[in-house]
Each structure stands twice: as structure tokens, then as C-alpha cells.
Design a protein around this nucleic acid. Structure first.
Lengths: 123, 123, 123, 123
DNA sequence: GTGGTCTAGACCACT
DNA sequence: GTGGTCTAGACCACG
């Protein structure tokens, strides 16, 4: 399974990191699980090990994984990760709404149209 | 007034373009208004004329302004620009909600919290 | 009547020249007719006399008008002008067809589709 | 092979872009093919890397190529590109015919003369 | 080595 | 004075 989209403008390392974040959020990868090794993932994705390494470094910096020298990379146990993501989404939406208000678009009007598009797939 | 943020990761020309888009959306700049000249704006922002030029080229490409050689750049008369922006915001919010659903966050729950933050400043 | 389109990318002097060429082709301006004076036309178009002058110079260079010092500019008597224009159009179309052939588009196919669009307004 | 024509009024970056578009249309460059690097092409054409860069940016904007940072530029897979070009040519020819009608030239007459010039090289 | 951005400075077309 | 293009050279992000 190669999820890299070269047509996507974003750098490859970012796509790799993003992919793992999603897997962690969705619970596919859980606390303590071992990440694929840098070399094996690089092979699997037909990309440069440096690129995978950069993705892992980024994930570690953002608190998603931790490294044990000589053993590998592991998913962190972070109970608040979900809340962080939730907060992140809320902040983003609120900012978009503010932006709309700034240029004179009614927020209520927006919500109505958004609901129309969301409901069919709501949980 | 210098709105360039060198800390911002985005290129300077993009920040300049963005800034003018906002001014147009907000109505500060209206159809037919003349934009500052490439050179004068470059001076004011202490940046290079080419950088301003690139921002203007981008704005023209996106249909916000038009150019008359030897005269200057002017704001375009584009009635549908507001609708475009609205559609853009709706799409962005819907995508964020989908993202939330993907990782198991209830959209209804999100909306409640968003409303709490929006209401105080709602129109 | 101001036919200048500032949104048009082309320089103003070119638009002015173009406009007069069309009037001559259509017979609205005929051989010997006097052109509007540089100053009066500049006033009428709210543009710079230099710009009008440049348009007239261009028209003279291309053989459409001639200048009598102190009297004004006049439309030339050029019987072959029509043929020139016709030849010009033919050359342009032939070149477009060659371009199509170069990239493997059937010319016959093109002609069929063009006729569909032309016929409703054919003479 | 240097296809730049300094006599041509059009800017160099436009000539470069045009040239690649033709190569893509003709199938010389196919989906996924790598473009020459900005620097190498600049050397080959004895021009400035920025000029090549501008051409590539333009090509990307128009949907002909995509960029992977640190890897290079690649030809996009766009099946509908041919149809676009065809439509473009048809529109241009139709406009020329309208122009002819405007000044009283018979379109049928034109077609006859065009066919005379086209047939010898028709497919 | 690859593309992306920016600066500095020049020349040209247009008004 | 206005924008459009080009050159030269630099620095950064990415792989």
C-alpha cells in the first residue's frame, strides 16, 4: 500500500507523517505499537530513507511517537491526543467563521448550507 | 502599515496577495480602485519590486485585479467573487467535519462547542 | 462612444488603431474621409493625446491613413485593403489547421464542428 | 536544439512553455515523463534559470505538469487536454470567420480558398 | 541535485 | 512614472 501522491503539492515527508497521524487517530495504530523501521518503510514506499526519517522526526516533535535507540520508533501513549485534535478542528472552524463575518457573510446562512452537505453522512 | 510577517512560513508575495484579497472582500478596495504602484508598494513594504510584481501577477491570474500597461493595476468588477469565497469557506468547513468523523469525533458535539465560541460575536 | 476596454490586456493605442481598421473595413470610414483630430479624439476617449498619436502613426505605417500637415489625417484609397484582410484571415485559418494536424487532430472533423457553429449565422 | 527566437515579440518564458505544450500535444512528452531540470534547460538554452522557472510555473498553472520538490517536474496525466486544444482551435477559427462576416467577406468564399491550401497536406 | 523564493539592478513598452 | 521581462546571484526546503 503506497499512499504517496506525487501530484499532491505537499512534500513527501509531510504526507507520510499525516498518514500516520490519521492511523493513530483512527486507532489503527495504538499506544506502544511499533512503527515500521525507517529502512523497510522507505523500501515499501520506494522513497528515500532520509525522507522517512524526516517524517518520523516530525512525528516525534509533535508528540505522536518516541524513539528508542537501537530498537525503533513507537506510538506514544497520549490520552489527550484526541482532545487536541478536536480542539484543533474547532479552532479551525471558528477561524473560518470569523473570516466569513469579516467580509460580511452571515454565519447562520453558512451553517444552514453546511448542514445540507453534512447531514447525508452524519453519524 | 507593514503587514508582512517574516516568521510566517508563507512566501512574501503570497502574504501580499492575501492581504489585498481580504481588503477587496471587505470592501476597503472596490471595483475600479487603483492599486498602489509596484514600486511604491515595494518601498512601503521595504521589499523588492519583483516580489510585489509577483503578488500582483497572482492576483490578476485569480481574477481580482487587471492591469493597464503604463497606467497601473486596478480592482476588477467581479460580482461573483463573494459567492466564490463563501463556497470556499463552506467546502473547508465540510472537509474539517469529515476529518472529524473519520477519527470518530461526533459532529454534533463539535457544532455545540463551536457555537459556544461563535455566539458572543455573532451578527 | 468610448470603445476602449481597460480590462483588455492589449495596449490602448492598439485598441484605437484596431477600431479604426474595423471601421474602414466595414465601410463606415471611406477613402478620403477625415479622421478625428488627435486632440478631439483624446478628449472623447479621456486618454492621452500621445496615445492617440501613436495609434495614428501605426495606422499610417500600415497604410490605412495618410497625414497632411496642418490639415489632419485622412483615410487612404486602398482598393486592395479588403483583399489583404481576406488573405490575412485565410492565412490565419490555414495555420490553425496545420497546428491541428501537427498534433493529430483530423481537419475534416474540425470543419464539421466549425460549420455547426457558423451556419446559424451564415450569410 | 535551441528553439528560442529572440526576434519573436513574445517573452522567452512563453516560448518555452509553448514549446513544451506542443511536445505534450504531439505525444513526444507523455504522462509521467520527467521534464528537463530548471538548471539544465537554462544551460541548454543559454538563458536564465529564473526564466525557465517561470515557464514551468506557467505550465503547472495551466495543468500540463506537476512539481515534486527536490525531484523535478513531470508531465501530468490529462486525458482531456486534447479536447481542450481542439475546442481552442475551433473557437479561434469561428472567431476569424465572424470577423470576416463583419466586414462583408463571404464565409463560403473563404472556405473554398482555404480548402485549396489545405488539401495538398490533408490527412 | 532539485525546485521555490527573494534581492538587486537593468532594459523595454506604454501612457 | 507605470508595468513586464530578463539576468545574475543568493539562500532555503526537499530528497
Amino acid at each position: 500500500m503506497n499512499f504517496i501522491d506525487y501530484q499532491d503539492g505537499r512534500p513527501i515527508y509531510e504526507q507520510i507523517a499525516e498518514n500516520f497521524k490519521l492511523q493513530i487517530y483512527k486507532g489503527i495504530l495504538q499506544a506502544g505499537d511499533q512503527m515500521p523501521s525507517v529502512r523497510s518503510l522507505a523500501m515499501e514506499l520506494s522513497t528515500n530513507p532520509n525522507t522517512v526519517q524526516k517524517a518520523y522526526t516530525e512525528l516525534e516533535r509533535q508528540g505522536f511517537i518516541y524513539t528508542v535507540k537501537g530498537r525503533g520508533n513507537f506510538v506514544k501513549d497520549n490520552a489527550s491526543m484526541m482532545d487536541n485534535k478536536k480542539e484543533e478542528i474547532i479552532t479551525a472552524v471558528v477561524e473560518l467563521f470569523h473570516e466569513a463575518q469579516d467580509i460580511g457573510i452571515s454565519v447562520n446562512e453558512l451553517i444552514i448550507e453546511i448542514k445540507k452537505k453534512i447531514e447525508p453522512i452524519d453519524d
